[in-house]
Amino acid sequence: MTYGEFAAVRGVSFDVHDGDLVTIIGANGAGKSTILRSVMGLLRPRAGKILFRGEDITAEPGYLRARRGISLVPEGRRILPDLTVEENLRLGTYVLQDAGEVAAELERAYSLFPQLRARARQRGKTLSGGEQQMLAIARALVGRPRLLLLDEVSLGLMPTLVEQTFQTIKELYRQGATILLVEQNARMALSVATRGYVLETGTITLSGTAAELAADPKVKRAYLGG
């Protein structure tokens, strides 16, 4: 992956199996967001291939990937500021055809995050940072994704909400969702993930099951604070 002439990520190869919960951990600027954005199709890799359910989607624009069932909670939330909370969620259901399905998904999102229900008619930009984070997560879920890309979902949430968000992620995983999770909070990420990769300045230096990574001395020192 390159930004102009600057190669942010190169030679990275990883896979996420159906029904897996995989995490990529790495320091600031390692290229985690770059990877998620290119899986979503918001960036075009200069070389390499992206396969989704066996099909080559490298050349496909992001909106078609969304229709295949890929969904992103982007870094920085990216709530649409002048749409209401409900409209933001409706945008998340854009790929659904059936009005009944849309209503059911909105209902599910509201029961997951009751705070959003109370603010359904409020504009996105008037939400607090944590509420915006909830909205970003809910918005990515309501489209019934097959592959959920989560970029720093716990950022800016208070500890109980971080806990709750990870519970939600685990729950989704148990229900069969496939999840690729990027986190500053490596301890949390490794505690929910099945497998993980360590990304250092644009290349993958380590991979294994979450338990293996959590036990690795290098990982412990660099990402788990001891």
Binding site: M40, G41, L42, P61, G62, Y63, A66, R67, S71, L72, P74, R78, L80, P81, D82, L83, E87, R90, L91, G92, Y94, V95, R139, G143
Partner: peptide, 24 residues
């Protein structure tokens, strides 16, 4: 309308709107 929602969202942030399946 759904198209109208997509139009308003595209004006605010086309990139993220496309990630929800909108052909911006």
């Amino acid at each position: 309308s759904k198209v109208g929602l997509a139009m308003r969202a595209t004006a605010m942030d086309a990139e993220i709107t496309s990630s929800f399946g909108v052909n911006t």
